[in-house]
């Protein structure tokens, strides 16, 4: 199991949720994971229902069996100041740079630089060891930018190489790429069983592969339960409505005759079944497309009660059940 797990996905597919559940799953049984956020959205804090995360590694959850999940919201400005401090001992000059807009400039405008700082911080956490020489974190899970931008984001070397041909940023980019293109890293994509996210996932995988970034697994999120299968739908097509009304009546829902409460339910319930059938067919189509990607597929259920901390633990359990466990 790679030590840096990068989770991307189209907007709205729940990649932050999946990243958090994965961090929990990998921490289970005494491991320690770091969940990293790079887009300044405070999505992790919202998910774990805590206050906004500072630029500091902080324990946010305890996993079953004694593991720990730490979280870090990387702030590119602070990361750059850190970095300058580390290499140049800038001190108060850093603040002067900030006043003048240089830090803003370097982290926002200078293309690729921001990304080097963000990925650099994550890679540093991956490689960090304690005094006894053990890795501080067994796994680092990154809630990464969406599929459309992920290859660019991770491929910092190419981005920066054209601009900063020498100098510490260049070196930093090189060493980051060593981690990102190695088996130590796996990039996972989260999708839904819908046309656009699946298409974007396929495109994203092609891009990642072209850039020689290690593609991990595909996680289908928010999968709705299968209430009626193909055989049931076939029965529905042939069953007389009067029979359905009688059955509803037997179930205790009123009269089966014309105008009876049970009879009045038949049409709307069938309409819902028809929508279900249409969606079911579309989902099967998208499953087939995903199947052709030739990657390990995981499915996570749609939680009926909406997403909360308990739900995260449920998804983490599900990931473990599907063989996603922390290793060293």
């Amino acid at each position: 199991m790679s030590r840096l797990q990068v989770v991307s996905g189209k907007g709205g597919t729940g990649k932050t949720t999946v990243a958090a559940a994965l961090a929990l799953a990998l921490a289970t049984e005494g491991k320690r994971t770091l969940l990293v956020e790079v887009e300044g959205r405070q999505g992790i804090a919202q998910l774990f229902e805590t206050e906004a995360l500072p630029y500091e590694e902080r324990k946010i959850a305890v996993a079953p069996g004694g593991g720990e999940v730490y979280a870090l919201a990387i702030d590119p400005e602070l990361a750059l100041l850190d970095y300058l401090q580390m290499f140049y001992k800038l001190g108060s000059a850093g603040r002067a740079l900030k006043r003048i807009g240089a830090i803003d400039f370097a982290t926002t405008i200078a293309p690729g630089l921001r990304d080097v700082l963000l990925t650099g911080k994550a890679c540093e956490a991956v490689r960090r060891k304690d005094r006894s020489g053990r890795f501080v974190y067994d796994h680092v899970v990154m809630d990464a930018p969406p599929t459309g931008r992920i290859t660019r984001f991770l491929n910092v070397n190419d981005e920066v190489a054209g601009l900063a041909k020498i100098g510490p940023i260049h070196n930093q980019a090189q060493s980051v790429m060593q981690v990102l293109k190695s088996p130590e890293t796996a990039v996972h994509l989260v999708t839904l069983l819908e046309e656009m996210p699946v298409q974007e996932t396929a495109d994203g995988i092609a891009e990642l592969r072209a850039a020689r970034l290690p593609v991990g697994r595909v996680i289908v999120n928010m999968v709705r339960p299968q209430v009626l299968d193909a055989a049931d739908l076939e029965v529905l097509r042939t069953a007389p409505r009067t029979a359905l009304a009688r059955s509803l009546s037997t179930a205790g829902l009123g009269g089966a005759r014309r105008g009876g409460s049970a009879e009045q339910l038949v049409e709307p319930l069938l309409a819902q079944a028809e929508e279900y059938a249409e969606r079911y067919a579309l989902e099967q189509e998208q499953r087939a497309v995903l199947g052709e990607l030739d990657l390990p597929l995981h499915e996570l259920p749609l939680l009926a009660e909406g997403m909360d901390v308990a739900g995260l633990y449920e998804l983490a359990r599900e990931l473990r059940k599907q063989g996603w466990q922390g290793g060293s």
Partner: peptide, 21 residues
Amino acid sequence: GTPSPDAVDQVTAGLLRLHAE
């Protein structure tokens, strides 16, 4: 060619679960 009452009950239960969802 029409489903048995049993099969109808079964899909009706499915319809109701779908509705509950």
